[in-house]
Design a protein around this nucleic acid. Structure first.
Length: 439
RNA sequence: GCGAGCGUAGCUCAAUGGCAGAGCAUCGGUUUGUGGUACCGAGGGUCGUGGGUUCGACUCCCAUCGCUCGCCCCA
């Protein structure tokens, strides 16, 4: 028999952790739906030609083949691969089903994606992403760019974790670095480095920029630009100090989104000219989301606007904007730092004690009433000592234990013990249900 | 692709080259209508795998596989 082992980069949680993760996902889904986003569940597998947009076949794409593929030849790519995000599948889907969709198309997709990376802290090869995107025909109102942070902040509010969405605009970013005098051929490298400001610090970034051939004066100005963060006024002021013009399409877009968000608490979002995003396809607003309580975690949720989502698949102009929560990275870090409770090992809210075999019918009838109220209920499986039955509930983190001993159809009295407080009440079942109907 | 560290009980880890251990977890018990704490007890091991050195290897050497953590990259 082979030894059971874990596979690097493929996280596997305990039941308690899985429950916490699934609860988070359900919470995210319910917020997404509250904004009208509709679920989409595309296959895990796409054709490699679809995944390899722009003709680039990345080695991080996992291929899918039969174990004994007859067709495997030297130099011939496999036909199928596992999706590495939800955006490419969405583009393919929209291209294929264009005629059946109503625009703006607002969809969410929660599921696993796969990347053949070298795993390390916070980087997995299989992980959950929870995406929302809006796709429109021809033009997509900027209102949707402002909706993304609203939705995301609401999800983090649910789990009681402070979050801050930082936004920038690709056009503005390019415009400003050009104004500073960064040469076009260096732009990609400069931006890639500028994105690391938070991670490596100003001093190291300065060295890297000069290493690229920037003068010390220019690299200093790039540093100041990348470090610019705050509200609209603050950004405008900083640009003025740097002698840069706050104008143009990028500036107008970013300003408009910012004005749309003025009702949100000031510490939950900001503009940040150091946000770059690696993806080539972002063309407008871009987002990164940070948790102030866990600065070491980096961005847990990012995305942006793209002018042409599906142009490779259909001859239409379909702009979109979307954002994606890196659920696995987030969750695993919260587990490590006790940021998410994992005391519940199962969904059970109430364990019904089984005093003896003759009471089983009675217990079943009580359980049925509880379940009808939406209370996850289990009956202990064997008429064992009470202390064993209660200990079972305690170890699994089941919050309430119900003693059916006095219960009868004529006098439906139950005793219910709260294991957290040790408090025990005796009252008619219906009466207890009326006060505990919703967990 | 590059680099570093680590593989011993379910988990976290000990063990000068000389009998394989602890804590936690699990299970049982401390007189059976009430958990957590405490005490007593039990089960559980091809020391990742293969080779070498040695009277003798968990320990030293080589190889291999795996895991972890960095770098690169991150559509």
């Amino acid at each position: 028999m082979p030894k059971p082992r874990s596979i690097s980069g493929f996280p596997e949680w305990t039941p308690a952790q899985t429950l916490a993760e699934q609860t988070f996902l359900r919470g995210a889904i319910s917020v997404y739906e509250s904004y009208g986003y509709t679920p989409l569940d595309t296959p895990s597998v796409e054709r490699v030609e679809v995944l390899a947009a722009k003709g680039v076949v990345d080695k991080e794409i996992y291929a899918l083949e039969r174990l004994k593929a007859e067709s495997r030849k030297e130099g011939v790519l496999p036909e199928l691969g596992l999706r590495f995000d939800h955006t490419i599948p969405l583009a393919r889907y929209v291209g294929l089903h264009y005629g059946e969709l109503h625009f703006p198309f607002k969809r969410y997709q929660v599921g696993k994606v796969w990347r053949g990376e070298r795993p390390q802290e916070g980087r997995f090869r299989e992980f959950y992403q929870a995406d929302i995107d809006v796709i429109a025909e021809e033009t997509l109102p900027l209102h949707f760019d402002a909706e993304m942070p609203r939705v995301i902040l609401e999800i983090f509010e649910r789990i009681g974790v402070k979050a801050q969405v930082r936004m920038n605009n690709r056009k503005l970013l390019l415009d400003l670095f050009r104004q500073l005098g960064v040469a076009e051929e260096l732009m990609a490298d400069v931006l890639r480095e500028a994105d690391k400001l938070d991670k490596i610090g100003a001093e190291e970034l300065g060295c890297q920029l000069q290493g690229l051939g920037l003068s010390s004066e220019l690299s200093g100005r790039c540093l100041r630009l990348a470090a610019t963060r705050g509200g609209l006024d603050r950004i405008g002021q900083s640009l003025e100090e740097l002698g840069l013009k706050a104008e143009g399409e990028g500036w107008e877009e970013l300003s408009s989104v910012a004005r749309d968000l003025t009702d949100l608490p000031a510490d939950e979002w900001c503009l940040d000219l150091g946000i770059v995003r690696g993806l080539d396809y972002y063309t407008g607003t871009i987002y990164e989301t940070f948790l102030p309580s866990y600065p070491e975690l980096g961005s847990v949720c990012s995305g942006g606007r793209y002018e042409d989502l599906a142009s490779g698949f259909i001859n239409k102009k379909l702009p979109g904007v979307g954002i994606s929560i890196g659920v696995s990275r987030l969750i695993s870090h919260l587990f490590k730092s006790q940021g998410l409770p994992t005391d519940r090992h199962c969904p059970t809210e109430v364990l019904i004690i089984l005093p003896d075999e003759d009471s089983r019918a009675k217990c079943n009838s009580i359980a049925k009433k509880l379940r009808a109220r939406g209370i996850p209920t289990e009956i202990f499986h064997q008429a064992q000592k009470m202390q064993k039955q209660i200990r079972y509930a305690d170890r699994k983190g089941i919050p309430q234990v119900l003693f059916p001993h006095r219960y009868s159809e004529d006098a439906p009295q139950v005793e219910i013990k709260n294991l957290a407080t040790g408090e025990q009440v005796e009252q008619p079942l219906e009466e207890w249900l009326a006060t505990h109907a919703s967990f």
